[in-house]
Design a protein around this nucleic acid. Structure first.
Lengths: 242, 242
DNA sequence: CCTCTCCACTTGTTTATACAAGTTCTGTAT
DNA sequence: ATACAGAACTTGTATAAACAAGTGGAGAGG
């Protein structure tokens, strides 16, 4: 249910591109045409366009028009850097069957070393969760999630089995807004080999991240260790003028 | 020289945060206060704020105010995902001495297999460049760049030794706007071991990307192979409502 | 003491308008 | 035919205004 006026315009343009009404290289109708078509102001059209620009669909050109530069990807990448998606959401998008196995679920108190790593304050009560994610039968991600209990009360292993984000958003009414992540590659540990189907690989792609809710509270620290050939991160960057 | 009015506001807020005038968790003065202080409209302030939000400095909260969530990083990451930076720019930002060695510089014609990999059309004339990037004495990145000659005429090994982007932007007057990248980890090849100081690592962090100029032409295809412990990608993601 | 309502404040969305600045094409003059 | 000027478009920046919607505190009433 769209309560905003720019959202239908955003989706209309996006689906016109994905359904190849406008191909890569084509120019869209002008902003004024869209404004007339959707009976809105030019600003509202520009807002929809700027979202699609940030996503790499469009390239506005001063004086010329707005060009489509979107090309569908041949190989799909499971994750999009720059977006915040749960594993379930990403798996659905790539149309593969996803399951989760809980390895650890316990409550801990934040000590000095955990605080240094995660950024939580010493003494805070935390959920410590380890999960292994499967695509089909292959174990592809070994996830360690640490949640601030005061912000995520009532989390259980059953919920972690399903979708933690759905619980936080739908049941607790939390809004997830911002996430800071770091991507690197590391040597696989014994535990990685034990839990993941690494095959002949002896390294993993790791992502560590901090997630904030709409109150500005960092409520989650996550470390994900990925099987390299099953996971890839994609993103679109826009060069800043400032 | 700022020709735009939102740019000074953007920098003022950013430096106030980086100089710890406002710390993580603090709320900024309201948009109306900034509008009065900079003698501009609220929209102009909001534009500066939205840029800093996308960069992970700020978290606007409906009805409450704009909160600072920026924390300086302990370990610096060389690259920021989501930005388009040259190696020289990134090295300067992390205050390490960067040098470049040209391994290959030749002109080639795009054949079927190159076209499939890069997205250039068969028959196009291309520059094929291989470079090794050093931080201090250590070889940390093995770069393969393929440029469309028609868009980057006059490129030489000497320029590639220095900064290709500076040549494109300053001399050719090109504007680099959008880039699409994919990050993954791969087993190191013999050539990787030969060119990079991999130490005990036998895998690399790879980034492949396509870069567009302001005319919507894809003029560059790049593949970078990074020594894992020297390179890390950082980014800030904002969860979308739409 | 607790609760509820309301006010004053915040950010979020949208409109309308004006002008700046870049591009492309047309038409005129050479 | 060519060159140049200008018109007619395009997107980019900024303003002012109005209202929607969320937050938090003050104050009234129980």
């Amino acid at each position: 249910m769209p309560q905003s006026k720019y959202e239908p315009i955003y989706h209309a343009i996006k689906s016109d591109i994905e359904n190849k009404k406008y191909k890569s290289g084509d120019f869209l109708p002008s902003e004024n045409e869209y404004a007339a078509r959707f009976d809105c102001s030019r600003n509202t059209v520009r807002r929809a366009i700027s979202l699609l620009t940030a996503e790499g669909y469009l390239l506005p050109q001063h004086g010329r028009g707005v060009q489509v530069i979107y090309r569908p990807e041949k190989e799909r990448s499971l994750f999009t850097i720059g977006g915040i998606e749960s594993f379930a959401e990403a798996a659905t998008r790539s149309s593969r069957k996803a399951t989760t196995k809980i390895v650890t679920f316990e409550e801990i108190k934040c000590d000095q070393s955990i605080s240094l790593m995660t950024g939580f304050d010493v003494g805070e009560d935390l959920y410590y969760i380890e999960r292994v994610r499967y695509l089909g039968k292959q174990a592809v991600i070994y996830d360690t999630n640490i949640f601030l209990i005061s912000e995520t009360k009532g989390l259980t292993a059953e919920i972690a089995q399903d979708s933690i984000y759905r619980y936080l958003e739908d049941t607790l009414g939390m809004t997830i807004t911002t996430s800071r992540r770091r991507v690197t590659a590391e040597r696989a540990t014994e535990r990685d080999h034990e839990l993941l189907d690494l095959g002949h690989f002896d390294f993993v792609l790791t992502v560590v991240g901090q997630v904030f809710n709409s109150r500005g509270v960092m409520f989650e620290y996550t470390r994900s260790r990925h099987v390299p050939d099953q996971v890839c991160f994609a993103e679109t960057a826009v060069r800043q003028k400032v």
